[in-house]
Design a protein around this nucleic acid. Structure first.
Lengths: 104, 104
DNA sequence: TAACAATGCAACCGTTGAGTTGCACTCGCT
DNA sequence: AGCGAGTGCAACTCAACGGTTGCATTGTTA
């Protein structure tokens, strides 16, 4: 189930989306509520939320007539693990080369 | 020295850039060499390399008349740690709320 | 030193994406 | 029942971005 990573990081590559995530990290909020705290229209927020839901970083929660959104820490940690794996792999190759160079 | 995360992830939000990173993760390569392996022009590659250098994921290494590029695993792991911190923080808040709900 | 390979720089094009405004719809609540 | 808050959908603008081609420059090496 591990598709390519690019789309998720594309979603994380926007400043406004990070503002949204920061707010949602504190408490669940609706699109309208978020629009009240950030300097962009509600519709812009709605689009961003759609993008974040798309990549699994955020989850909608119906609450009466409004829709609140929740930040998904598990998904974030999953990404962290993938990056860590890749990063350490690069380093492993590097240190292997260094070792060979020293031994010769 | 921890600026905002968005620019780094914007750099990681492109499929071609991941192809480049994957290649560089295996061995150091020049822009021309990369252009030989990927279906884009050398100039496009050069731009991507510029973006990756900009956010510290890649490092240029002069080798005679050519410039090879090296993938920086340490930077990648640093990103992983930041994501992990954020993700677990979100989860901590969630479980705190759950605990309160159960206790009431 | 002459020639070729690699890099660097600039202009251009098409597409994507963030943002806006405007309007229709749907639930809650009085 | 009806009013209003919250949501959803659509069309449009503008800037940024990925990609290209063309040309100038640098530097190795035969």
């Amino acid at each position: 189930m591990t598709a390519t990573l690019a789309p998720v990081f594309a979603a994380l590559g926007d400043e406004t989306r990070w503002s949204i995530l920061t707010e949602l990290g504190r408490e669940e909020l609706s699109a309208s509520a978020l629009a009240g705290r950030l300097p962009v229209s509600r519709q812009a927020i709605a689009k961003h939320l759609g993008a974040l839901v798309e990549v699994g970083l955020v989850e909608p929660v119906r609450a009466g007539r409004e829709v609140r959104y929740r930040a998904l820490g598990a998904r974030m940690s999953e990404l962290a693990r993938q990056l860590e794996r890749i990063g350490s792999e690069w380093d492993r190759r590097l240190s292997a080369i260094k070792r060979i160079a020293e031994t010769r």
